[in-house]
């Protein structure tokens, strides 16, 4: 079932973020919400995740769905170890044994098994973000939301994390929805790039990239064309 966002309105006091917003997403695939800062991308993710409510409008296709959410910040409990942080979100949904299995599996995927007894303060920013990725994977939500998950990370680490996400998507084939205003990130991961302007948020163009995500795209000429379009849209010089 498709995810349909119909006639959604959202205001913050007198500031209009979403004004009769409409969008449709396939139920699987890596979708990127691309646009300038403050155009309403995070608001949209928060509405989908139930952290914020729309003033008006309809969202179909998320009924009874669970969400994994990789936030901009790691959002780890500073007083809990890596293991305890992941266990926190599994403890009410899984048996102890199942939770342990999931935790071990995904900590191993993000290469942090050795650090499970560490407190967040002892880890670097990149490692903490990897923990939050492992937490999102371990929860195994039906839809994965990501809000600029690689912001502030250096390119090498960013690439490693994006590769984790791509390999996870190949296992699950779910709907991944990620927000970015970084051209490289969008072109490396997304199958569909939805380009926005705003506020209020307005869909200006949708690009579909039919080349497998990841390294295969690096030397592809078609990607260069997309890149040029995205760079221009980011600078606001070209309305696509």
């Amino acid at each position: 079932m498709k995810l349909q966002i119909k006639n959604v309105y959202k205001n913050y006091e007198n500031f209009q973020v979403l004004n009769d917003f409409n969008m449709e997403l396939s139920s699987n695939g890596i979708h990127c919400l691309f646009g300038p800062s403050g155009c309403g991308k995070t608001t949209l993710l928060n509405i989908l995740a139930g952290l914020s409510t729309a003033d008006q409008g309809d969202i179909k296709g998320i009924e009874n769905k669970t969400f994994s959410y990789i936030f901009q910040e790691d959002r780890l409990l500073p007083w809990a170890t890596v293991e305890e942080n992941i266990f926190l979100i599994l403890t009410d949904s899984y048996s102890k044994r199942e939770a342990q299995g999931l935790m071990d599996k995904y900590l191993d995927l993000v290469d942090l098994s050795k650090f499970k007894n560490y407190y967040p303060e002892a880890l670097s920013g990149g490692m903490r973000q990897r923990v939050s990725i492992a937490r999102a994977f371990a929860y195994e939500g039906d839809i994965l939301l990501m809000d600029e998950p690689f912001k502030g990370l250096h390119m090498e680490l960013k690439k490693t994390l994006m590769d984790y996400l791509i390999s996870y998507w190949h296992q699950k084939k779910q709907l991944f929805l990620f927000v970015t205003h970084d051209v490289e990130e969008a072109l490396y991961m997304a199958d569909h790039i939805h380009i926005f302007q705003g506020p209020p948020m307005e869909l200006t163009k949708k690009l579909t990239i039919d080349i497998p995500a990841g390294d295969a795209r690096n030397k592809n000429e078609k990607i260069d064309q997309f890149k040029e379009m995205l760079v221009h849209s980011n600078k606001g010089k070209l309305r696509l």
Partner: peptide
């Protein structure tokens, strides 16, 4: 509040 939001998304009781 950000930790509480995280807990809400992940359905923590």
């Amino acid at each position: 509040k950000k930790l509480l939001e995280m807990a809400k998304v992940y359905g923590v009781k």
